[in-house]
Amino acid sequence: MWDWSFALEILPTLASAAIITIEATLIGFVIAALLGLALALVRIAIPWTAWPISVLVELIRSTPLLIQIFFLYFVFPKFGVVLDAFTAGVIAIGLHYAAYCSEVYRAGFDNIPRGQWEASIALNLPQWATFRDIIIPQVIPPIVPALGNYLVALFKETPLLSAIAVLELMQTAKIIGSDTFRYTEPMTLVGLFFLVMSLVSAALIRILERLLNRRTPR
């Protein structure tokens, strides 16, 4: 049932595909973290945008990521923007998780005592400086664990990219399977890879959480 020599043989191929998976995860998360922050900031800075943004966030969160990936991949070319599968997929993942992250940031902003804003106004700080020097440094540390959880969730969604034929881990495993008619080893190895990475990152997040709590006593 389980052939060790076959498993060893496909390991290098899978390892190089794992790099694509990790790349997609990191780029996707950078988009999600920055865009999510931007959404949360715009919501606070320009009050009338609060309603449209919350509807947009709700729209993105209540529809499947797979459909959003297809949508971006197939619809962009209609408007003359041709994106390769990797770019379209990573943008879709980034947008999807930006919606989730923006809610995390929003909770972070809501947790800042009102006095901090009032003191900034009293000190005549411009809005930009208030955000950059006063508010954001206090917002980020408490929400790092929540963002970290979304990083892991995003990582686990990257196999969806195989649906638009990005040569990441899942797609590579499928190709190996259909070439050799042996699915047991590639699929199990992919599963193990995700399991190990998730457990390791969960442990890292816990350590990071402890470090941050030490720096910012409550």
Partner: peptide, 23 residues
């Protein structure tokens, strides 16, 4: 709990679909 939370839904779906028949 750890196995199903630690791997992706798609991986689990494919694993059940492609690997179990081999057993």
């Amino acid at each position: 709990v750890e196995i199903f939370r630690g791997t992706s839904a798609l991986v689990q779906l494919f694993w059940l679909f492609f690997v179990l028949p081999q057993f």
